[in-house]
Amino acid sequence: MSGGRFHASATTPTRRHQIPEFFTAVAVWMAAGLVVATLAWILIDIAVRGISQLSPSFLIEGVEDAGRAGGIGPVLFSTMLILMVTLALAIPLSLATAIALTERVDQDSRFARNVRRCLDVLAGVPSIVFGLFGNAFFAIMLGLGYSILTGGLTLACMVLPILIRTSEQAIVAVPNEYRYAAAALGLGRSATLFRVVLPAAAPALMAGVVLSIGRALAETAALIFTAGYVARRPESLLDSGRSLSVHIYDMAMNVPGGGSRAYATACVLVALLLAINATTTLLLHAAGLQGRSVGGKG
């Protein structure tokens, strides 16, 4: 019987058994090593090519000679503005939707399932399509033109599916014991939500926000048709502005001799992402919201 043989080989490991084990281990480690190495290589490559151009003035000065000279001051400024518009819309909207999907309607109701299906479809839509939509809707129909506002709103639509999904998972992951404990203490539904569930979900919620910021900062295609690529410092949210990613794209593709400047800008972008990541970790740590284990220590 095959069952018996299997048992025998499981209890007395043979050489023949160990060899595939060994290869599996090697393959797994090599795959993991490859991923780390690729990442390291990209980072080092960007740093090596860009770092010579980096200086404090590069971060402040205006874009000159199509970017071959000067710095990226206005670009950084536009990026921050676009990001702020995006988050100002996306965070409240996605948090409200996630709360509705988890705490208000039945998890498995048709409504909830349909909303989730829509979100999954939206999450798979290429960003260039969001760009076209943003251009047609925000820029032309609502008359916002090529502007920071149009760009930010378009990016908000783009990150909404991920942000809602991550927020939803963050809230669902809060153990039900917390909800029961809160209810047993006479906390109503909203008090339970705001005082107990959301604080407990905060680290995971923040992780979703960081992820979305990453997506928004990296976006180029959706911004070209919406925020535009004017490299001047925007005077208001209705001015066009160029984001870091669009600047990188433009320098690398359209400006002969812009390569090293593109790399320098990429350095700034990566540093910005790392800084945002580190700050949120620090903030959460400071707020004492790291662990969520329920069990006692002894």
Partner: peptide, 30 residues
């Protein structure tokens, strides 16, 4: 209102992941 007058203790201790002070204050404040 009922649960404020009828407290409940669970089998598994379930303090919130907050400070000791806040655990007690939370419902009192509410």
């Amino acid at each position: 209102e009922l649960r404020r007058n009828v407290g409940m203790i669970f089998q598994k201790p379930n303090p919130f992941a907050m400070s000791i002070r806040r655990n007690i204050e939370l419902a009192v404040r509410e």
